[in-house]
Design a binder for these strands. Sequence first.
DNA 1: AAGGCGCTACTTTTT
DNA 2: GTAGCGCCTT
Length: 824
Amino acid sequence: MTLILDPDEPAGWREAPHRADTADDPLTAGLNPQQLEAVEYRGPALLIVAGAGSGKTRVLTHRIASLIQRREAWPSQILAITFTNKAAAEMRERVEALLGEGASGMWISTFHSACVRILRREAESIGLSSTFTIYDSADTRTVLKRIIKQLDADTMGFTPASAQAKISKLKNELADVESYARNANLNDPQEVMFLEIFRQYTRRLREASALDFDDLIAETVYLFRAFPKVAALYQRRFRHLLVDEYQDTNHAQYALIRELTRPVERAIVDELDAHGVLVRGLVDERGEIPGASLTVVGDSDQSIYAFRGADIRNIVEFERDFPGASVVLLEQNYRSTQNILSAANAVISNNFDRKDKKLWTADGDGDQIVGYTGYTAHDEAQFVVDEIEALHRAGTAYRDIAVFYRTNAQTRALEEIFVRSAVPYRVVGGTKFYERAEIKDAMAYLIAVANPLDELALRRILNTPKRGIGPATETAIATFAEQNELTFRQAMRSAGELGLGPKVTGAINALADVLDEAAAMLVPSQAGIEAGTNEGASKVSDVLVFLMERSGLLDALRNSRDPQDETRAENVEELVAQTRDFDRENPQATLVDFLTQVSLVAAADELDDASGTVSLMTLHTAKGLEYHAVFLTGLEEGLLPHQMSATEPGGPAEERRLFYVGITRARKRLYLSLAMSRAQFGEVAVAMPSRYLQEIPEGLIDWKQSPGMATSRGGTQPRALNARRGQGGGASGGAWGTRGRDLERFSVTKNAGAKTEWANRVTGTVRDNGDLTLEPGDRIRHADFGEGRVSQVTGEGTKRIAHVSFDTAGAKKLLIKIAPIEKL
DNA sequence: AAGGCGCTACTTTTT
DNA sequence: GTAGCGCCTT
């Protein structure tokens, strides 16, 4: 274990010599009173409740800069946690700009990056290789798939996805196999089976020296709890912790913060002292190092990650958690127009159990919000692109425009229209470069070299490119490894003892040789080893090129008859180019550094400010960003709120926050759009306007085409969507499509009087009759119209329409798929 | 062992 | 609409 983290770090830190409050001080100039308070407050704990666009990044950077400039802290004593790597890089730049100098030694990173850094340093303490692999969700799934198959657990209803979700949830709560086993009901076969899956999963990752995303946080907490002396090194070092987006921290992250801000006991202080760790100047009168100061910034209205364990209580109960905590409220908004803020305020006020908070601006109302209802997703996309082109003609740069949506699947229609219209765009996140099969293959070669214990990586490349090593051979190696207590890699070296054919044996040996040679390239020179640097080791790009050429992967792609393989080869070349960039920008970095960086890129990290393109992204990815013009698309029941959220406790409220986050990303122009029908699982389904649209006060939205217009094709008056917003029942989320009962209106009713059906109704889920078949002569019962006889059926698939003469209500036309009917 | 064909089930959001 | 799986043939 490393005892001295920063040998050249000056001893101790002094109290602030002065408090410069001059208007010229760049650290305080132009801040409003609340911001100033948040920058200058000193104490053990500070909560900054920062509404959207209230300048929290500014406050954080100024706070850090003031700590350093006033000599209250050295840069190395700062640990700032941001949500993305891009935000971290930005924050560092801004702090350095304020200071007018570099601030090296400062840790500004994401939770995950910080934990990896700590874990690689301290890996030995917890029996991990310092070159441990980080498994992404796909890797986790692959491992679980194998385990479930082996245990025949699918017969008990387990899927890789379900097991993955459950394991992730447990780890976010800091539960491990043992603690889960203690509380498990062992009479429940389902639970026993899950326990076995969990146990094997944990064992396999251990054996591969691999950690999944959740482990990165949890293992760091375990490390600190099990090794107080190791924890003390970090508790001593980081005197100021600043955590952004605190509302989205989960329990494990909260525990990590608690560990890092814990005081160091006297006995451990003395021990550190004896080992030469500088502690003088840090200890208090009792000989302890007091806990680090903690600053958290967050907004419970923007909590959108409950699904991955984010616990809103962390921020709500902050003052109780950290006695002596101060709270600063930032409500003044510097980003958006008042119209946009009024819409946001109105929407979010429908959530219960929240501290009332109203964003306001001094900058005026601005333009009206623009609304549009398309007939289809393509129609909607066309509207978006048309408006973008209009904005562009009027002088807005493409890069200042963003299009948001709830699910990644929604990009398809948007992309088609963007391509057709030749508007430059970029999908942020989504199908990532590093998720492509050929890139994962190439990365698996690098991983197999960096971490020979990683069986998953080895098995991935074993027969990629095809070298005649099939499943049977793979199993033979795995079995041999297990029986002889060897790693998979070692078993490969013993291929000769497996009784395989000479061709297969040769192929395995050849692969093992290539990996060995690549590993040799990574060993630093003697001088490098002595200096503790990476000197003399081959560059990442050279190792990758060596592996791609010697393994035959690149040749196989180039010489393939499959036309898609040409693109795949280009992608591999692109990866090589990326490693060259990495080598150039990080001359001291190792292969493991490269692998780490790739593992931890967030969707928003891909954003390139210099690109002249419109950005397309999910609402989740949009958090923390802002654009001149924002398009919120797919504002439909089932999409926002998403169908899947309906059953989750707190689901609809979280979806509302997601909508709120989307609205508040817009500076000047906000567009809200939806489609009346949307294709899902390849079939067209009817879509209802999102209940949240109704929560926006009348007059804020200028509907170019309102749901009412799009619906009653008989030509009713253009009418604000929420014109009949009624009776104060808004909070219950009244909306149009109650169980699809007004669908007959959508489908055909020519009667303009049908608009009475636009009354607010409590929304349930959209009804779905599946492929209920009706034929002329069938009798049916309708929820509202009673019994009737089908006279005719027209249309195809989901758009089949039944023409019914009701016994009392007369003739009606119904969309069979979703009308509230049953066959008698 | 590998490639091709056809069936099915999926679609929330992410580090 | 498609990715992924299983079954088929070569």
